[in-house]
Nucleic acid binder design. Structure first.
Lengths: 220, 220
DNA sequence: TTCTGTGAAATAGTTCACAGCG
DNA sequence: CGCTGTGAACTATTTCACAGAA
């Protein structure tokens, strides 16, 4: 089964609209319709689906419920990936209290910090532990994902400790970019990088708009 | 000048290491060295740099400071993109107090919410205004970027209001995926989508590791 | 007749390999 | 001699276009 990175990046988009369609009571959907909603080419939809082993019905389309189920399985959304949040300052606390992560299958199983005043306090029903216990915590809670919410200056150090403790993915909410040894598969949501890319496209779209009479133009 | 999306995605990584090299007092860097640090092929580095009009010196390499400057300009990091945060609950408040956005050139110029108890209160030195005034706020503060920090259920609605108010990029910290009309160029950092992609790779790396004796294997 | 599934063409992106500059 | 800049080969991804299933 052939799942390219490009396909993986589209699946969540497809899934979003499929869930919507399912909610609207639609039982089947054509590649044309799904392509239009998702903003991609219909052939790409068909290739992506064929690539992950999903087959439709000629003359009809694809079964919405089946699609939702299969894509969820492919993405691993039927399972939970417990996370540990490193750093329980403002941001860490907000993330701990925030349902977003849990709702999406990333329950917060542990919180760590270095501040003695915070250790043993309880946030969102989870006891804050000392960073030094990370290896045991990761093993005990079967933690796969580390959330970086430390001050910028400690982000790289925290990332290193997480990786050393056995965590295999990082979610970085720090403004810092962090580097991880390439021996470990890590997918990082790196806000700093995203912001720089955002800046590029924002600049480009602003430049494209300059000179037109429109306060807001569509991009070319 | 040819700047592909693939190149744009790599520039922040290059920049990160270039800043590090500059800090270490390195005045020049070869494509081989930068490639090794960034985890890409040296030819790709040279192509990327040539593509954005950066030229090096044969036998020597590229000038680190010049590279940092040029890439910063390309990415638009020399300018600020004022943001408005929509929703000042836990997460919105944390983001408002958080220096990450400002440090990276996205100063928080406005905060909006719908809760009358919050309107006119001051968070991080910014007065909370009512969402209904968004169009004026966006114009007044020259806001380019909207940060979504509302409860999930209001995320789409907030996104629509932002777009209608003239914002051209969104940063979505909500667990929801939002759809934006494709007539407007929007680059969304969508946590929900990122989490689903993270889940996929996490699952894949876990599967790859199963059966090996290693608690942590490198990915293939 | 509608819509899938897929060869084949087109396009994009990466990597090799090396001529040639400093 | 070391390292850039880039043709050319290669690989990946997208899109077209259409045969054929329901």
């Amino acid at each position: 089964m052939n799942v390219s990175d490009a396909t993986v990046a589209r699946l969540p988009v497809f899934l979003q609209y499929l869930v919507e369609l399912a909610g609207d009571g639609e039982s089947s959907v054509s590649s044309d319709r799904l392509a239009e909603l998702s903003g991609v080419n219909p052939a790409t939809v068909r290739r992506d689906l064929a690539g992950i082993g999903i087959t439709g019905t000629r003359g009809v389309g694809y079964d919405v419920k089946y699609l939702v189920h299969e894509i969820s399985v492919i993405l691993g959304l039927n399972q939970e990936w417990p996370v540990v949040i490193v750093g329980v300052g403002n941001l860490g606390r907000a993330l701990a209290n925030y349902d977003g992560l849990t709702e999406r299958g990333f329950p917060v199983h542990a919180l760590v910090d270095v501040d003695p005043d915070l250790i043993d306090s309880k946030i969102a029903n989870v006891v804050v532990e000392h960073v030094r216990h990370l290896p045991e915590i990761v093993a005990r809670e079967s933690i796969a994902v580390g959330v970086l919410a430390t001050p910028s200056t400690s982000a790289q150090e925290a990332a290193d400790v997480l990786i050393a403790s056995g965590v295999t993915s990082l979610l970085n909410f720090t403004p810092e970019q962090i580097s991880v040894p390439d021996t470990v598969q890590v997918r990082g949501v790196d806000l700093a990088t995203e912001l720089q890319i955002l800046s590029f496209y924002q600049q480009r779209s602003t430049a494209a708009r300059a000179g037109t009479g429109l306060p807001l133009g569509d991009d070319s």
